[in-house]
């Protein structure tokens, strides 16, 4: 009986061992890449809203401070979605007959909330508080990006745990003076490597052990 496998099969069988390793690594890489993709994190995706509100116009164009509408951002877990009344402050007169804003007027007239779609939605097993971040010098822009350049609101970051930890491991790379928190396009007045550690100390931002402890966010 002749040989079932030709002699070259020896080489093939050795190569296949490598191939298996390669395939396994590739599958692993693929899974991790998909897991981090915008498709899974919903980053950089435009979301249809009841009114296509432009932050670019209101924040960038007119220069309204973030806190004019997001009134509870300094003191509460939620930054605060403005009631329709806040829109009406100006739009009782400006664009007051525009069909584009009819949903806003209808909401105010009938006392029915506009059903805004949440863009930044953290999993429910994560505790997040805007107040502590803002009062410790984390700028709006640091997490939300250049909102003043967004005609439609999009999530600019992954909001995944590795992203949170990146800052929690060393916040000195990101913190800014408190009075610059809502500034868009902020440039530190001195080198961040010098300013950051100073602010971390001044604002009494907790150390690595506390900031990366599981129960800080999963409580």
């Amino acid at each position: 009986m002749s040989q079932v496998f030709p002699k070259s099969a020896n080489a093939w069988s050795k190569a296949s061992v490598l191939a298996i390793v390669f395939v396994l690594l590739s599958v692993g890489w693929m899974v991790l890449t998909i897991q981090r993709s915008d498709y899974v994190t919903t980053a950089n995706q435009f979301i249809e809203q009841p009114v296509q509100f432009s932050h670019q116009h209101h924040s960038g164009g007119i220069g309204i401070d973030c806190r004019y509408c997001h009134t509870s951002v300094e003191v509460s877990p939620s930054a605060g979605i403005p009631p329709t009344k806040t829109c009406i402050n100006c739009h009782s007169q400006i664009w007051a007959t525009s069909p584009y804003l009819e949903p806003v007027r209808a909401s105010f007239r009938d006392d029915k909330p506009l059903k805004w779609v949440k863009v930044h939605d953290l999993p429910d097993f994560v505790y997040f508080n805007h107040g502590i971040h803002v009062t410790k010098g984390v700028g709006c822009e640091t997490c939300h990006g250049r909102v003043d350049k967004m005609p439609l609101m999009i999530q600019k970051v992954s909001l995944q745990m590795e992203w949170c930890l990146d800052c929690h491991r060393d916040p000195s790379r990101y913190v800014r003076p408190r009075d610059q928190v809502t500034t868009m396009g902020y440039q530190p007045a001195m080198a961040q490597a010098e300013l950051g550690p100073r602010l971390v100390k001044e604002y009494k931002i907790a150390g690595l052990e506390h900031m990366t402890s599981c129960s800080v966010c999963h409580r």
């Binding site: 899974v31 899974v40 939620s78 909330p113 949440k118 999993p123 429910d124 097993f125």
Partner: peptide
């Protein structure tokens, strides 16, 4: 590995977040 993360039960727990809609009340708030 493939199906990890497919379940969203704990991502969206049966509790209300701030401003979430509700079917329990006539005005939906």
């Amino acid at each position: 590995l493939l199906f990890a993360g497919c379940r969203q039960d704990m991502h969206d727990a049966p509790r209300y977040e701030a401003y979430e809609a509700s079917t329990s009340f006539a005005d939906g708030r």
